[in-house]
Write a protein that binds this DNA or RNA. Sequence first.
DNA 1: AAAGTTCACAACCGCATCAAA
DNA 2: GTTTGATGCGGTTGTGAACTT
Length: 344
Amino acid sequence: MDMKRRVNNENDDDSNNDEEMNLRRGPWTVDEDLALINYIANHGEGRWNSLAHSAGLKRTGKSCRLRWLNYLRPDVRRGNITLEEQLLILELHARWGNRWSKIAQYLPGRTDNEIKNYWRTRVQKHAKQLKCDVNSKQFKDTMRFLWMPRLVERIQAAAAAAATTTAPAAPGSPTLSATTSVTTVNNNNTTIPYNNYDNLNNNNFEVHSGNIHMNMSNNFGYATPENSSTGTSSDSFVTQDYYNNNNVHHVGNNNNNNNPNSDYYHQQGNNNNQVSFMDCITSPSSMSLFPHQEMDFQAMELPNTPWINNNHTTFSNFWNDENMLLLQGLGGGDNVRIDWEKGI
DNA sequence: AAAGTTCACAACCGCATCAAA
DNA sequence: GTTTGATGCGGTTGTGAACTT
């Protein structure tokens, strides 16, 4: 294909330009970031190749675009993925698969790259631990019938706790509707209240400005730009509060990742209901499934909690063994049958 | 304390698509 | 209709940090 070759030639050109112009690759420096930020602040985005040149950056346009979109953009939301976000990711991935950019549209401030990394590092890891393919029905059932219900439970619990212990949320802040009805999975009597996940056109999951209303009793879906009959759009999910809480401030060269120049921007606020990655996705069901594991939800919501930082492998361990047993126990249920031996 | 391993994520690569010339 | 440049997307890699042995 000429175009492919041409586009590939873009890389070839880049390679040539690399030699001619000594283009840089790899981690961005502080000066490069500042140059890009300042240039975009003055001239706006777009025309990335010319932007790179005009800004005096010895980078490809692609590299500049990626750096801006995934890292430097002021509204990039960093930090732990919330329970709601995890639920959205799981559900939207079930619907669209690896359409990361599309999924990212529904998670304000999150980039496709971040969601993709989240999926690969957390979700796929557990598929691996469960010894099933991430795209297998087994694993999808695990997500549908265990992780997601438990996430909903925990979202409710967190919301309830917040309602009783804190002041009312600011208008427009994302909260879960108290009307959410969830029937949970248990070892003895398997009841899967929300079925027909695939029939997502019948949405009973509506995202409104500032609130997430879930009626899980029948179907489970989302109002989307494509199918919403209420005019709900992805933009409507971007509440003012979200942005109000996503205040950006310059924190200098704060290394919290492998990028030596990281965190010119550091997200503040909007930590409601935030729990660590490992806690939530490693085992959304872990709390109630294993009551002997007494955990402090409030403490878990605090960033840098020693419990999170020092023992983050705990959950993955008991998720594996005991949830496997639980899933096996589901085999006799009316609404779900998971045959681990035959692999469905 | 050192070496080895795993994790998390920024960055890159290849390809596809779109729009303008 | 073709060419060309720009952009976007999904997959993959590189690497520092964190953790384990």
